[in-house]
Design a binder for these strands. Structure first.
Lengths: 341, 341
DNA sequence: AATCATGTTCAAAGCGCTTTGGATGACGTT
DNA sequence: AACGTCATCCAAAGCGCTTTGAACATGATT
């Protein structure tokens, strides 16, 4: 069923039917009701494609997911973020189109999306330090919104980020207040902006308290379970082991706990652990009392919000760039306690 | 830059330029070269939208992700599967469009995709027993391919699945051969088809060996870390604890290990564990010697293949339904050993 | 009675592409 | 010289929508 058939069925012109359906005022209430009724009856849905051609809008938002051909890592956060964003899109009648892209082709993909007019805007995932994509999208004139920020990029742009710096500074202070003096950081890849900021918050909190930065206590890598395990094992087995560990991901924290318990130590007693928790749906941090003390911020909620911000921009291109900085909650769980004496 | 502008630039008709670019024979080699050169120079890309309108093809595949409004769970496997499928799509010039959908609206979404002609086909995720979606898509005449199977659906359809039954039967036999007689199953939700089949393989292997099915040793739930932990803890603390555990997901297996080690037992010595491993990129099963003995099958590879199968069908609608049954590898790691005497 | 505003509807153009059904020459055949 | 045959190329229609500009009643105003 298309517009033409529908309008013939109704004995009306396509113009009128189109207007009736799209809420234009110059249609009598009676006609509008009749049209809407018929549309429902015939299960008519306008073709997005044709609509897009006619209006110049794509009614779609692009998500470009870079997948490095080296480590083939798909960010575990991705599924939940997408789910959040998707909720917003379907509420607004937008489609989400996903491009999985080899790192190196990323620029070509953005150019392609633009020149094919495939999307009205894009979400930028996983910004790195000085991320070149932001400049590129700016130049292309393709509306975009960034999940995170890119330190080193001068021009303003729309982003939503967790206050990673403050979260990790607070977590560090929290551990300090419990008496911990050797606090380790198990961080993500520090070329990633979020990891950089977390380290920054951690380092500042230490310095503010006249504690030294011990390179032996700072690790950075891809946040797998195994990485958490190895890092912790190495630090606990080495000289001057930490009494507390700050960890960048719940998955790695599972490895951290494993290394701790494997050594006959108790988490929350012998070694305290604070982790960041993205509130992934398949990785809940315990029940009533969380297992891990955590800086907590839902990535799904982030998806919902950032998508809404981008849609705002698409609807109103003149809007100045918007920013949202979410404060992570510091949730106290069972993994922290006073420093052993 | 659009077709019209490009052809004016070249002093050719749109027809000729279009044909040159799409590899039709009735264009002289010289002209074709000239056109291709210009297209490259101007960075011309045809609008997918317009192309779709003209040809009736959407050049897009839909993935409808049901997100239950109750538990809000996003399948952790999803990211990797999508990544695999995406690789296939971009190689073939297709777009992937994602709909995140509340369980109950799913039918409406499929109808919408069809009547708006938004996609040429869809991938069905997470089939359940007697899944109604298969009948629906059949009736709609929308090409589709299923990741997994749906027991109880009579008509043939295109699917790709891991041989879950055989994998879990083999794993059970493997444990039996190591001397284990009390083998537990920590399974996914058994309304999901894959979980049903795994249980089936497990049960058959036990029965074949004259072992009883002990309901106390069979758990089913959403495969979180916590679920693995609780289930294992309960079984180990109860009467007649298992000496071996078969687990449906690597994430839950982490919880299984935690419960084991928390009790001062050693995995692979006191309690053996075999888990299914989807080879998720952020959850590697150890290094040289895998941590867990596992039935292993890459969900990313599954994505790549199933996408290709669907594209085949879209290209050739007369094709009979295709099926692929992948055998999981049984990888021996450090989590299994002879039953304690 | 002529004019005007108002409310409602429509025909047709246009969005960027593909494709049908010719045109146009160049060339060899009869 | 007239005729097919090819190899190339093109004008125009059509895909399903939106939107412009105009037409047509209707009733109120002069």
């Amino acid at each position: 069923m298309n517009l033409k058939e529908l309008s013939q069925n109704l004995g009306l012109s396509q113009t009128t039917v189109s207007r009736a359906l799209n809420g234009y005022p110059e249609v009598s209430p009676a006609t509008r009701a009749r049209v809407e009724e018929a549309a429902r009856a015939f299960n008519y849905r306008p073709s997005n494609r044709a609509k897009g051609l006619a209006t110049g809008k794509a009614l779609a938002i692009g998500h470009v997911i870079p997948v490095s051909n080296k480590h083939e890592m798909v960010n575990p956060v991705f599924g939940d973020f997408i789910a959040g964003a998707g909720e917003t899109y379907s509420r607004h009648g937008y489609e989400m189109i996903l491009s999985i892209v080899d790192d190196e082709d990323e620029e070509q993909v953005y150019r392609g999306l633009k020149s094919r007019r495939a999307v009205d805007g894009v979400i930028v995932h996983g910004p790195r330090m000085d991320d070149p994509r932001i400049g590129l999208l700016h130049d292309l004139g393709l509306p975009f919104a960034v999940h995170g920020r890119a330190s080193g990029v001068g021009q303003p742009y729309t982003w939503l980020d967790v206050n990673n710096r403050s979260a990790f500074a607070r977590a560090t202070a929290f551990l300090y207040d419990l008496g911990h003096r050797r606090i380790a950081l198990i961080n993500g890849l520090e070329m990633m902006d979020f990891a950089h900021r977390r380290r920054d918050g951690y380092a500042h909190a230490l310095i503010e308290r006249d504690l030294p930065l011990d390179p032996m206590l700072m690790r950075s890598g891809e946040m797998t379970e195994d990485f958490g395990y190895r890092s912790t094992a190495a630090m606990l087995d080495g000289g001057g082991p930490p009494t507390a560990i700050l960890c960048s991901s719940l998955i790695s924290a599972l490895g951290v706990r494993r290394a701790i318990e494997e050594r006959g130590l108790r988490m929350g007693v012998d070694v305290s652990v604070v982790t960041h928790d993205d509130v992934l749906s398949y990785l809940q941090n315990g029940g009533d009392v969380p297992i891990f003390t955590a800086t907590r911020s839902s990535v799904r909620e982030a998806g919902r919000r950032l998508a809404a911000m981008l849609l705002d921009h698409v609807a109103n291109p003149l809007l100045a760039p918007q920013n949202q900085l979410l404060e992570a909650e510091l949730m106290v769980g069972q993994s922290t306690g006073p420093a052993p004496s």
